[in-house]
Computed example of a mutant assay.
Amino acid sequence: MSAGIRVGTRGSALAMTQTTTVAERVSELARLPYELVRVRTEGDVLKGSLSQIGGTGVFVAALRDALLEERCDVAVHSLKDLPTLPAPGLTVASVPEREDVRDALCARDSLTLATLPDGARVGTGSPRRAAQLRSARPGLDVVDIRGNVDTRLGRVAGLVPGAPGDLDAVVLAAAGLRRLGREAAITELIDPDVMLPAAGQGALAIECRESEATPGVREALAAYDHLPTRLAVTAERAVLLQLEAGCAAPIGALARLQGNILALEAVVCSTDGRSMIRLTRSAPATDAVAAAQLGLDLAEELLAAGAADIAPLNG
């Protein structure tokens, strides 16, 4: 039995920053020391787009293996990277309060989505962002990119001295930029009315073994859990689950809790951005079961409206 809490993390700057914040808080709540355990995932090694290398789960599988093999006690994930189906033997024991849910435009010369000229080259690795960019600004040249946050920022002309600077802008998650202290690169926080975020965007998930019995750890994780965030992301992820949507499907979802009413909005786009189905549904939601049902119901409405006809689902 470890004398402290071993916290599994990917080795990227963003992952290390996120995990350190979580580890410090859980350590404080559990009154136990912590150590970080770096785990290299396939997503950190393989090249190509996410849809080509196996989807967002490539960032998660190695961390889950480390948990099951007891090389670490808890693992910290970006929630939007977590597959919608749970892993046998593991549980998401805590979802801390969410950061900014929005996508952020980082452009040369302080340009915004409205002021980027037609033909401007905008980079993103997300089919969801690409489709909504094409819908909002059909004249843009949307370019598929990979790499960590600083690598992507370096692709923007004039943003990072000595970097390639071959693009006019990139779109990244505002939460990641904030966590890394890169807010200065943001030229526009894109309104969700224009670009609906990914399910779970801005939230973290702390996973542990169902059998985790280190005194104080499960209690600390429960205390760290933020119910409004958990309800929102549960509804959002239920949309993806019911649509059987993989990472290649351009789908956005965002839920907000107002009193005891959860308002959920979701969008399904064609990859070229020319077709879009966007629906909203609200329901009382005081627990995860009700939140999940809201997501399932909205997904059924999207399917009835023709979502499977315009987007690559069943991935």
Rank of each mutant, 00 (worst) to 15 (best):
T41I: 03
E42I: 05
E42M: 07
G43Y: 06
D44L: 03
L46N: 11
K47T: 13
K47D: 11
S49T: 12
S49G: 08
L50N: 06
Q52I: 05
G54F: 08
T56P: 11
V60Q: 03
V60R: 04
A61R: 14
A62P: 03
A62E: 12
D65F: 07
A66S: 11
A66M: 04
L67I: 07
L67R: 07
L68N: 00
E69L: 10
E69A: 07
E70T: 15
R71E: 11
D73C: 13
D73T: 10
V74Y: 02
A75M: 10
V76D: 01
H77A: 10
H77T: 09
S78Y: 08
S78W: 03
K80L: 13
L82N: 00
L85A: 15
P86L: 14
P88F: 11
P88S: 14
L90E: 01
L90A: 03
L90P: 00
L90T: 02
T91Q: 12
T91I: 14
T91P: 04
A93F: 03
A93I: 06
S94P: 00
V95S: 04
V95A: 06
E97F: 02
E97V: 04
E97D: 09
D100G: 09
D100P: 06
D100R: 12
V101H: 02
V101I: 06
V101G: 00
